[in-house]
Structures are given as structure tokens and as C-alpha cells.
Simulated scan of single mutants.
Amino acid sequence: MKFSVSAVLVRGFLIGLLMFGAVSSFAGMILLSVANGGGIPLAYLDGTPFSSYVVPGLVLGVIGGGTQLLAAVGLLRRNSWALIAAVVAGFGMMIWIFVEIAVIRQYSDLQPVYFALGALELILVYALLGLAPRMVRGLTPARERVSR
């Protein structure tokens, strides 16, 4: 599928967001799993099934960061499944933040930032699919614009 110049820029921005999400998820995994929470009190885990931050850290890095990285690599390689992977990664980021708030019942200024990151990834995918044409002009695939 051939895209217009603006679609190429949006695709590049989406790849950048996904790579940022992957790197920060991997950093979070290290902070939680290796650095034993990095100073986050273990009391935050009271009432959860976890006695340490190792398992949540691994979930964050492997599943959260893994889906972000997989989607970015898929987009770079122009795989047919890449946009689906980006949707999974975006929703995964949003679900992680929602569950984190619900489970540990603590608020951080980073939570809305990462929730917005996941939402922005979804918006960019929708724009690339032509589902948000009024929001972002010129993102309809080129062959569809020509045939109209």
C-alpha cells in the first residue's frame, strides 16, 4: 500500500512512539526486577498476589515492551500484521496503567503520560488506516485517494 508524504511522517512518528514505549518498558523492567523496585515501597504491593516487584517487572518488560518493540519492528519491515501489533501495543500500554492504578492504588505523574502514549499510538494507527480522515488530512492511502 502506497501512502502520501504525511502518512509516511505519521508512520515514522508511530514507530518512534513504539520504540520509546519499548525502551521505557525495558527500563521499568530492570528497575522493578533487578533494582528491587528502585525505591518504590513494597507496601504498595499489599493486597496483591505479589511479594516483590520481580513478576510485575517481567510482565512490564516482556509483554509491554515486547509488544511495543514487535510493532515497531513490524512497521519498519512493513509487515502486513504491523498495524494490528501496534493496536495491541497501544491497548496493552493503556491496560497496564489502568491495572496498575487499580491494583496498587497509588498515583504517579507518569501514569497519565503513558496512558496518553498508548492512546496516541491508537489514534495514529486509526489515521494510517484512514479511519480518522477529518482529524489528520492526507493520510488516506494514496491509491484510495486516486480512485475516488
Rank of each mutant, 00 (worst) to 15 (best):
V5K: 09
S6P: 10
A7C: 12
A7G: 15
V10L: 02
I15E: 10
G16F: 08
G16P: 07
L17E: 03
L17R: 02
M19K: 13
F20G: 07
S24G: 05
F26M: 06
A27Q: 08
A27K: 01
A27M: 09
G28S: 04
I30E: 10
L32I: 09
L32M: 13
S33F: 01
V34F: 06
G38Y: 08
G38T: 11
I40R: 11
I40M: 12
P41Y: 12
A43Q: 10
Y44S: 09
L45Q: 03
D46M: 08
D46G: 06
G47F: 04
G47S: 00
T48I: 05
F50H: 06
Y53T: 08
Y53K: 00
V55H: 04
P56H: 12
L60I: 04
G61R: 01
G61S: 03
I63M: 01
I63Y: 03
Q68E: 10
R77M: 07
R78K: 04
R78P: 00
R78S: 02
R78Y: 01
W81P: 11
A85F: 03
F91K: 02
G92W: 03
M93E: 04
M94R: 02
M94Q: 00
M94K: 00
W96M: 11
I97D: 04
V99C: 13
E100F: 01
E100N: 05
E100S: 06
E100Q: 06
I101G: 11
A102S: 12
V103E: 15
I104C: 02
Q106V: 13
Q106Y: 11
Y107W: 14
D109L: 09
D109W: 12
Q111Y: 10
Y114K: 05
F115A: 05
G118Q: 04
G118N: 07
A119C: 13
L120W: 01
L120K: 06
E121L: 10
I123Y: 10
I123L: 15
Y126H: 12
A127R: 05
G130D: 06
A132R: 06
A132M: 08
R134L: 13
V136H: 02
T140H: 07
P141Q: 15
A142F: 03
R145L: 14
R145D: 15
S147Q: 14
R148A: 03
